[in-house]
């Protein structure tokens, strides 16, 4: 299984859609400093109030997470993971795989973990490039804090990838599955930061995995293990449960 996972990961990295997604991420990294060169006063004031932090770095992190990486978390996982198993079925490959000593459930796990690994590679690559590109171009940029905050968000993106795969096999058709996953992830992303805008709803929004991924915004000045580890563990658990659920649901897919 490990060998299959490795080969599938390599194949995923070589796919054209992965390269297009990588190009989009590079574009985002290069453009964001221009977008944030001179935010208007009402933007600075509002973000300072929501996150109790007047540091320009907080404005940057809000935009990076909300405008860029949360949108990435909506679209790229769906593109990478919505075809898992269903593509093989629709192209007639699944019947061949059925003759191999590998159950459909395990195959789903391998393909989903591989999609998660491709997503993580793209994500980590983008954050490392950003950490090199942003100093001097983004006011008050702190690479250590940035990477710590984004390491938490990476767990949310991994969840989104597993979620897209599971939703697709649950729906049973690639197009419809991608659409449902896109809508549900879009809803989660849309509501991810609502708890910061309306503090009365903060605790309620913690059921949203994408909110957990953005919890570093709560205290950027003092990011540490106590802030980052609990949501990371919660997201890792949710991802594992989602993949396990998908591996059960996939059994209903007709070969």
């Amino acid at each position: 299984m490990t060998r299959l996972l490795w080969l599938d990961y390599l194949a995923g990295l070589r796919e054209r859609k992965t390269w297009i997604a990588a190009a989009m991420l590079v574009y985002a990294v290069l453009v964001i400093p221009l977008l944030l060169a001179d935010p208007p006063p009402h933007v600075r004031e509002a973000i300072a109030a929501w996150f109790a932090d007047a540091d320009p770095f907080a404005v940057f992190m809000f935009v990076w997470i909300d405008l860029v990486m949360n949108k990435v978390a909506t679209f790229v996982p769906v593109i990478l993971a919505s075809g898992v198993v269903l593509r093989e079925r629709d192209t007639g490959v699944l019947a061949v795989l059925a003759a191999k000593p590998l159950t459909l459930s395990r195959y789903f796990v391998v393909r989903t973990v591989s999609a998660c690994a491709v997503m993580l590679t793209l994500y980590v690559g983008a954050q490392l490039l950003a950490a090199l590109w942003f100093p001097g171009r983004v006011a008050g940029f702190r690479p250590g804090t940035f990477l710590a905050a984004m390491s938490l968000h990476a767990f949310a993106v991994l969840f989104a990838t597993a979620f897209a795969a599971t939703v697709s096999v649950a729906v049973g058709r690639r197009g419809a599955g991608a659409l449902v996953a896109l809508m549900l992830l879009g809803l989660m992303v849309g509501l991810a930061l609502v708890g910061f805008y309306q503090p009365e709803w903060y605790e309620m929004t913690l059921v949203n995995p994408l909110t957990l991924g953005a919890l570093s915004m709560r205290d950027l000045a003092h990011l540490g293990a106590s802030t980052l580890l609990p949501p990371m563990l919660a997201l890792a658990g949710l991802t594992a449960v989602t993949i396990a659920l998908g591996s059960r649901v996939v059994r209903k897919v007709e070969v």
């Binding site: 796919e15 859609k17 989009m24 679209f75 593109i79 990478l80 075809g83 197009g175 991608a178």
Partner: peptide
């Protein structure tokens, strides 16, 4: 050739 590449291109256009 790949529907998900098409999906990605379309998402880019929408963005």
């Amino acid at each position: 050739r790949d529907p998900f590449t098409g999906l990605l291109v379309a998402c880019g256009a929408w963005f």
